[in-house]
Amino acid sequence: MKNPRDIIKKPVISEKSTELLADNKYTFWVDNDANKVEIKQAVESLFKVKVEKVNTINVKGKRKRVRQFVGKTPDRKKAIVSLREGDKIEIFEGL
């Protein structure tokens, strides 16, 4: 198994993700190669909570242009993790 800190990159702080906190759902940017089972195990080991469900979304990178050069931002993977009733992750408490 991979290191859990390599699977979970950082939390997603956006308007939509903060609305999901009311439903006990937390959003993270994760490794592109991680599957749902690895994400579940990583969240449970890092935050000492019980995960009920994991939904993943592949986010395509946007095309960017600087003068004559055209490039693209990297593709990323987002995971929405549903926790058991009563469990919370402390890093999201101040939002």
Rank of each mutant, 00 (worst) to 15 (best):
M1A: 12
K2P: 15
K2M: 13
K2N: 15
N3S: 06
R5F: 12
R5P: 06
R5T: 12
D6P: 09
D6M: 05
I7M: 05
K9C: 09
K9S: 10
K10H: 07
P11M: 00
P11S: 00
P11C: 00
V12I: 14
V12T: 11
V12S: 08
I13L: 15
I13S: 15
S14T: 01
E15G: 07
E15K: 09
A22E: 10
A22I: 07
D23S: 14
N24V: 05
N24D: 06
Y26F: 00
Y26Q: 00
T27C: 09
F28W: 04
F28V: 03
F28G: 04
D31C: 12
N32F: 11
N32V: 10
D33C: 09
D33M: 06
D33H: 13
N35F: 14
N35L: 09
K36Q: 06
K36S: 12
V37I: 12
E38D: 12
E38F: 03
E38I: 06
I39K: 01
K40L: 03
K40R: 13
K40P: 10
A42R: 00
A42P: 13
E44M: 06
S45I: 02
S45Y: 04
S45R: 00
F47L: 10
F47G: 00
F47Y: 14
K48T: 05
V49A: 08
V49W: 02
V51C: 06
E52D: 14
E52L: 14
N55F: 11
N55Q: 07
T56G: 09
N58E: 03
N58T: 05
V59A: 13
V59H: 13
K60N: 10
K60T: 04
K60C: 11
G61A: 08
G61F: 01
R63L: 06
K64T: 15
K64G: 02
V66M: 06
R67M: 08
R67L: 05
R67W: 06
R67Q: 14
Q68S: 15
V70I: 09
G71V: 00
K72Y: 15
K72G: 14
K72T: 10
K72D: 07
P74K: 08
R76S: 05
K78V: 11
A79D: 10
A79E: 12
I80L: 03
S82F: 00
L83T: 02
L83W: 05
D87Y: 01
K88E: 14
K88C: 03
I89T: 04
E90C: 01
E90Q: 01
F92H: 05
F92L: 02
F92A: 03
E93V: 03
E93S: 15
G94W: 11
